[in-house]
Simulated scan of single mutants.
Amino acid sequence: MTPDDDDAALVRRMALDDRGALATAFDRFAPTLTRYAWALAGSRQDVEELVQDTLLTLWQKAGTIDLPTGALLPWLLVVCRNHARNQARRIQKNAGDELPAELAAPTDADDARERLRWVRDAIAALPPTDRRICELCLLDGHSYAEAAAMLGLSVGAVTQRVSRSRARLKKAVTHDEH
């Protein structure tokens, strides 16, 4: 990756209305956002909406985004999660139901820290290979095939490990003991 291709440079280009930068961001982050959105939404249409809304927010806010670590993906995942919460609220309001606990915003900072502790503990408890796969696929945005090649595993093995890790992390976040 050249310095012009790093995330901060990409955001700066978007802030200058460079549509090519948005296309680059889409190519780079849409697969990861789509996988993440599937964990938050129940239909293909809802997933597509979350990804589009997240990238639209990126385009609209590019001039104000601060990336302390230089990585754009964490910012995008938070935005996607916020859009998922809003989407779930709309759906639940129309259905007259309560928001699912895993999408409900923490009521205070202590609750938010507690939820984050559970996630950090769950990630730390993963076997080293699973932890590395989560970093590569879920955080760094690599495809399963790329992660498999980097780690000398089959794509099927990576897929299984990601699925297993997601289930563990979901249990940690929702405090589900089953």
Rank of each mutant, 00 (worst) to 15 (best):
K93C: 03
R164E: 12
L99Q: 07
A167L: 10
T54N: 06
C134F: 07
Y36N: 11
A21C: 13
L55P: 03
D108K: 08
H178C: 09
V173P: 08
A8P: 01
R19T: 13
G63M: 04
L73I: 07
L58D: 02
T64A: 14
T64S: 14
P31L: 00
Q87V: 03
R166P: 12
D130V: 03
R81C: 02
G141Q: 00
N86C: 10
D140F: 00
D108R: 09
N86W: 15
P74R: 10
L103K: 03
A149R: 02
L40D: 00
R131D: 02
R35Y: 04
L58F: 02
I91K: 03
P100W: 12
D111W: 00
A84P: 12
R90A: 13
L72Q: 08
A149L: 03
P68S: 03
V47W: 00
A62L: 00
A30W: 06
H178D: 12
V79A: 09
P106H: 00
K93T: 09
T32M: 15
I133S: 05
Q60L: 15
R113Q: 15
R28F: 07
L67Q: 01
C137S: 00
L136P: 04
I91V: 07
H175W: 13
Q92I: 04
T24S: 14
L40V: 10
V78F: 13
D4V: 10
R28H: 11
S143Y: 05
H142S: 10
D140C: 07
W59Y: 13
A157T: 09
D110A: 06
L77Q: 06
R166W: 12
R115N: 01
